[in-house]
Design a binder for these strands. Structure first.
Ligand SMILES: [Mn+2]
Ligand SMILES: [Mn+2]
Ligand SMILES: [Zn+2]
Ligand SMILES: [Zn+2]
Lengths: 139, 139
DNA sequence: TTTCTAGTTTAGAATTATTATAAACTATAT
DNA sequence: ATATAGTTTATAATAATTCTAAACTAGAAA
């Protein structure tokens, strides 16, 4: 895959979500999705890496806006785990996580690696939005 | 059970955790534990209710300090669920929760109501600290 | 191609939850 | 009673995030 091909792909992807393909969004797309493996990040880490040595600087506000827009559009998944910071995942398939309380890092657990053989019925009028398990680990 | 009996009990409980039985801590103990059912709260809701119409006002800083001290002492459990706010639980037994994204309220799920028939081994050198499930629900 | 406009980016201010600071207060050991 | 370590408190500081409003830009329409 050549980068210019991916760029076209991102332009389409963004347009299909009613998001204009700005250079900021495309740069963030490339950073997030031009790779073989999915990964986890926070706005803080993304901001640092995006603005390390690139040509254009992207403001923190735009990083926030874009991560939020990409999450709404379904390109990213938010992982609720820590009380202070939001984590995001480029792996949008349903799956579980280890959360290391020491290093504050997430590791994927494939969906099939956890079997819930008994799950309670939600209260009337409510339905289950998400059943992904976060297993907290430490040394 | 008479309140004065519970008060003595709280004094002992606090002393046994090397916490001086101040009038602030005792008032918070009474508010949290003088009831038949356990419940969930945030510092914000606790602060409002504690300082509604009581004789002594307790500062927000003391509410934070006390909730932290009680959690360390094992009188309370912290439930990590939302990205913005810490939730606490007077039910310190291991159990699971529904978290309603609309009302932002927690509901207990008895430990036996969820069966995990397959759980992955944690990475080497790490052990599982906590395996309580939060099921996110919505309308 | 120029013009227009809604959408986007940005710096900086505001907000929210929480933690830190340091002075005044108090439980309790001596 | 006194001393002292622990506690409370108002207030400041911090951290993550959201808001604001002005400047900028993609892309539709003229
Ligand atoms: Mn926040
Ligand atoms: Mn915070
Ligand atoms: Zn993941
Ligand atoms: Zn509970």
């Amino acid at each position: 895959m050549i980068i210019s091909d991916n760029l076209k792909m991102y332009v389409q992807k963004l347009r299909s979500s009613n998001l204009r393909p700005t250079k900021q969004r495309l740069k963030i797309c490339q950073f997030l999705f031009d790779r073989k493996k999915t990964f986890h990040f926070t706005v803080e880490t993304l901001n640092k890496k995006i603005n390390k040595n690139g040509a254009i600087k992207i403001s923190l506000a735009t990083i926030y806006n874009t991560v939020e827009a990409f999450t709404s559009a379904g390109y990213l998944k938010e992982i609720l785990t820590s009380k202070n910071k939001s984590y995001y995942d480029t792996n949008i398939k349903s799956h579980h996580h280890f959360y290391d309380e020491g290093s504050k890092e997430l590791t994927d657990i494939h969906y099939s690696q956890i079997k819930l053989s008994k799950v309670p019925v939600p209260p009337k009028g409510k339905k289950i939005k998400n059943l992904e398990v976060v297993i907290r680990i430490q040394k």
